[in-house]
Amino acid sequence: MALLEIKDLTLRFGGLCAVNALSLEIEEGSIRSLIGPNGAGKTCVFNCMTGFYIPSDGEILFQGQSLRDKKPHYITYLGLARTFQNLRLFKGMSVLENVMSGMHCRTNAAFLTTVLRTKGQKKEEKHIREVAEECLDFVGILDKKDFIASNLPYGDQRKVEWARALATQPKILLLDEPAAGLNKDEKSRLIELMHRIRDERDITIFLIEHDMGLVMKISEKIFVIDYGVKIAEGTAQEVRDNPKVVEAYLGKEEEETA
């Protein structure tokens, strides 16, 4: 059984159809991408998966469980973590505090234990800190843990978002345009990082991307959507050769980037 299954997902805003009867499956331990031209509805798919939008129709199954009508925080608790297209860090807080947020749904100290500072609470706090530091170490910015998040350079802020998502201990990581705004060098390290996440932490990766080169390099399988409709799926080669895709997206894109 696939880890995540989307069946006939449809999302309408008023008369506009942002996502139209989209179906796809993501197997455990895979790296999958969703590509498509601007405004094709990619982020809408993510927002439906993570509970920020309520789909008009269709079903999203995670380990066989429906995510329909589930709140975003509960979906994260189930094991789907996401990053945002435009960074959404807690700007005024330290890098470490940012990453510690991910542990919230894996811990449970409440009012009384906090006020009394019980042993369990202290242990939990220590655990939260350790996990957060480990995640920062994993993405390579542990040395910047005490900085205020918004004072970091852009590339590092992205890493904070990654570490924060990893700290939720997800089964699947949804990355919304992870390469946007990164330089060539940073992109190649990003690819390496994605492989490490999958291989060392057993986390399935599903990403939305604009950067064709990156997607072609990393994904075993690619889904292409345009105007909310899936127009192709397959390996990088298959997608590249699909005339529909070339027409909708690659043709233009390759001319521009060539």
């Binding site: 975003p72 925080h73 994260t76 996401r82 700007k91 807080m93 991910g102 919230h104 749904c105 939720t168």
Partner: peptide
């Protein structure tokens, strides 16, 4: 504090 800073991001972090 997370919610105060960014409600949606906090929700996405499982809060």
């Amino acid at each position: 504090a997370y919610i105060r800073e960014d409600e949606d991001a906090a929700a996405a972090m499982g809060i």
